[in-house]
Simulated scan of single mutants.
Amino acid sequence: MEANYDILVQRQTNLIAKRMMVGAATALILISALLITVKNADPAWGRLWFLRPLIVVPLAGAMGGLFYHLMEGLRKRGGWNTIIANLISVLVYVFILWVGTILGLDGTLWD
């Protein structure tokens, strides 16, 4: 019986990790696309100014992926609950990504 429990816990852990990685990868792609457009960075920002957004924004994206996972209970109910859960998940992900972008770019591009 304990072996089945361990397998279920491992599957759940893998699913959480997968959803967090998808959220982080999406955020990394978006912030990278924004940072590539910067041609002449302000010297006052420092030489490695871009590392902060490349770390903070994907972490925020991972938290958005975690929120998506936490909405699974509502999504499993079916019908309108699935639509509402997916809509809430997208809105929360966008909000978390926006806040992460503000925190990551604070003092540089977001001034």
Rank of each mutant, 00 (worst) to 15 (best):
M1P: 09
E2T: 10
N4W: 05
Y5H: 10
Y5Q: 13
D6I: 02
D6G: 06
D6S: 10
V9E: 14
V9W: 06
R11F: 08
Q12K: 12
T13P: 01
N14G: 15
N14R: 14
L15I: 00
L15D: 12
I16D: 05
I16R: 11
A17T: 01
A17E: 01
M20W: 04
G23P: 02
T26H: 00
A27F: 03
A27D: 05
L28G: 05
L28S: 11
I29H: 00
L30C: 11
S32D: 05
L35R: 05
L35G: 08
I36Q: 00
T37L: 13
V38R: 01
A41Q: 07
P43Q: 07
P43V: 09
P43K: 03
A44K: 04
W45K: 01
W45S: 08
G46F: 00
W49A: 02
F50C: 03
F50Y: 15
F50S: 10
L51P: 00
L51I: 15
P53F: 10
L59Q: 04
M63Q: 07
G65M: 07
Y68I: 06
H69M: 12
L70W: 06
L70F: 09
M71P: 02
M71W: 08
E72K: 14
L74E: 11
L74N: 08
R75S: 12
K76N: 06
R77E: 13
G78Q: 08
G78P: 01
W80M: 14
I84A: 15
I84C: 08
A85E: 06
N86R: 07
L87Y: 02
I88E: 09
S89Q: 01
S89H: 06
F95I: 10
F95G: 01
I96H: 03
I96Y: 10
L97R: 04
G100I: 08
T101L: 14
T101C: 11
T101S: 15
G104E: 08
G104V: 06
L105C: 14
D106V: 04
D106T: 10
T108A: 12
T108F: 15
L109S: 08
L109H: 03
W110G: 03
W110P: 00
